[in-house]
Nucleic acid binder design. Structure first.
Length: 302
DNA sequence: CATCCGTGGCT
DNA sequence: TAGCCAAGGAT
């Protein structure tokens, strides 16, 4: 859950998740839909699918026995270089360094490395740096604590925008401390942005909404209200009817901005009247996409 | 190795 | 507001 996601955002999901799936066997036996429903709103839904798959592997193929080394952990789906190192060092005391965004930033500043945040060379530098620290501190018997200390330093003191060099335990020896620390690392190059307007249509009856499974490669398994790429409002009804849909497009319910990687989505919400009722489902009974959740919220708040 | 995946908080 | 980015991984 913590992959690319802040602790504050994770905690409530984590608690609900463990309440529902208290052990690996329970998670393995759950349906993917149930797992996704508890993940709905957290984002990066592939993580949930891969965690579910990993639970099946541990539960069924390994009879509930978890891996014991970074190498073994990394064989599980969704467990990559960072997560396997974090688990192996923190849970098993393996002397392997973790490299995440925090560590890369700390290392870039410490060496005043003029590299981009997503440059593989910076990642390599950070790995070497952590390996050296791990060797120097060999008498410290908790490799996980070293790893967590550097990540925590990046999260609380060596922060992206306003680093607090005055209180930093690494200011001695840091090439950027108190000078230009905030300019490291150089900002990542970003893909060309693409603006997209999407209209969502909300039909509701007795708390049930018209919701359908998403068909996109990345959103499969999630549900949303039906939508169209936007056109002028005056043509919406024609386009809707021509696509074989039933119902009349009604009043506008508002709009939200949503960013997914390079896509800047402007989502518009409309009421839909008189749609066929056979596809109406209770929104809490299916895993909603992020935009689907916002759409329902927009409807309920008007 | 570039690109894909979500969401929320901060500036 | 718009931009930036976060305890990444798979393809």
């Amino acid at each position: 859950m913590l992959q690319q996601t802040r602790v504050d955002a994770v905690v409530p999901y984590y608690e609900r998740f463990l309440e529902e799936f208290p052990d690996v066997h329970t998670l393995a036996q759950a349906s993917e839909e149930d797992v996704l429903r508890l993940w709905s709103g957290l984002g990066y839904y592939r993580r949930a699918k891969m965690l579910h798959k990993a639970a099946s592997i541990v539960s069924e193929d390994c009879e509930g026995a978890f891996p014991r080394s970074q190498t073994e952990w990394q064989e599980l789906p969704g467990i990559g270089e960072y997560t396997s190192a974090a688990i192996a060092s923190i849970a098993h005391g393996e002397a392997v360094g973790v490299v995440d965004g925090n560590v890369r930033r700390v290392v870039a500043r410490h060496g005043a490395l003029r590299l981009r945040a997503n440059d593989r060379k910076l990642h390599q530098h950070a790995q070497n740096w952590m390996a050296t620290r791990m060797t120097e501190l060999a008498e410290v018997q908790e490799p996980g604590s070293l790893n967590q200390a550097v990540m925590e330093l990046g999260a609380t003191i060596c922060t992206p925008a306003n680093p607090n060099c005055d209180v930093c335990p690494l200011k001695i020896g840091c090439a950027a401390a108190g000078k230009n620390a905030a300019t490291f690392p150089l900002s990542a190059k970003r893909a060309q942005e693409i603006a997209l307007d999407i209209c969502f249509f909300l039909a509701e009856k007795d708390g049930m909404f018209l919701l359908r499974p998403c068909t996109g490669r990345w959103t499969k398994g999630l549900w949303e209200p039906p939508s169209l790429e936007c056109c002028p409002d005056s043509q919406l009804q024609d386009l809707w009817s021509q696509s074989g849909e039933t119902g009349m497009i009604g009043s506008r319910l508002g709009a939200v901005r949503h960013r997914i990687t390079k896509y800047k989505i402007h989502a518009h919400f409309f009421r839909l009247e008189g749609a066929r009722k056979d596809q109406f489902v209770a929104p809490e009974s299916v895993p909603l996409s992020g935009l689907g959740k916002k759409a329902i919220r927009a409807y309920l708040s008007t």
